[in-house]
Simulated scan of single mutants.
Amino acid sequence: MQWFGALLLVTALSVGAGALASLHLMSTFQRISESQKEVPEKPISSAFNANDRLRKITPVVTNLAAPPNAWIRMEASIVTDKLTEEEASIVVARIGEDVAAYLRTLTPAQIEGARGLQYLREDLNERALTRSSGKVRELIIETLVVQ
């Protein structure tokens, strides 16, 4: 009988401790959710405007500078906003030629890894801005294959 009484006492203490812990967790959760409601949500802003257009550059396939048997194929697009269709086709052609000329000067070691890809992206963006007189907002590398 003493064991049964002790078992009931331990069970009652366990239920009480569990109830207190759950009440504490619920009050903490309510405080956190109320504090998050007070913070005004910022509207999601896009990096691009509604007027921007994505224009594809013809895929560039060319050999690299260093090993004679190394080839590169790149597909890219440019983001423009203030160009007519005629101006855009001219700018796309010029940038495509410039990209091909720039890729011919590279070696596989220069575009190896994340850092090399980042440098390539920055260089191509700078060249696109220069070639288009600032009318291109960004050059996006879609695919890049080095063989």
Score class of each variant (00 low, 15 high):
residue 1 M to Q: 04
residue 3 W to C: 04
residue 7 L to N: 10
residue 11 T to D: 14
residue 14 S to V: 15
residue 17 A to W: 15
residue 19 A to C: 13
residue 21 A to V: 08
residue 26 M to L: 10
residue 27 S to H: 09
residue 28 T to E: 10
residue 31 R to C: 00
residue 33 S to L: 06
residue 38 E to P: 01
residue 40 P to A: 13
residue 41 E to T: 11
residue 42 K to M: 09
residue 43 P to M: 07
residue 46 S to D: 14
residue 51 N to F: 05
residue 53 R to C: 02
residue 57 I to V: 13
residue 60 V to Y: 02
residue 61 V to D: 11
residue 63 N to C: 09
residue 66 A to E: 05
residue 67 P to A: 09
residue 68 P to K: 15
residue 69 N to T: 13
residue 70 A to H: 06
residue 72 I to N: 07
residue 73 R to M: 04
residue 79 V to D: 02
residue 81 D to C: 07
residue 83 L to R: 05
residue 83 L to V: 08
residue 86 E to R: 09
residue 92 V to E: 06
residue 93 A to L: 11
residue 93 A to Q: 03
residue 97 E to H: 05
residue 99 V to N: 03
residue 103 L to S: 13
residue 112 E to T: 14
residue 112 E to M: 11
residue 114 A to T: 07
residue 115 R to S: 14
residue 120 L to Y: 12
residue 120 L to D: 07
residue 122 E to H: 11
residue 124 L to K: 08
residue 124 L to W: 03
residue 125 N to V: 00
residue 125 N to S: 06
residue 127 R to D: 05
residue 128 A to M: 03
residue 129 L to W: 04
residue 131 R to E: 12
residue 131 R to H: 00
residue 132 S to Q: 05
residue 133 S to G: 00
residue 133 S to Q: 10
residue 135 K to E: 07
residue 136 V to E: 02
residue 139 L to Y: 01
residue 139 L to Q: 02
residue 141 I to Q: 00
residue 143 T to W: 01
residue 144 L to M: 09
residue 144 L to Q: 02
residue 145 V to G: 02
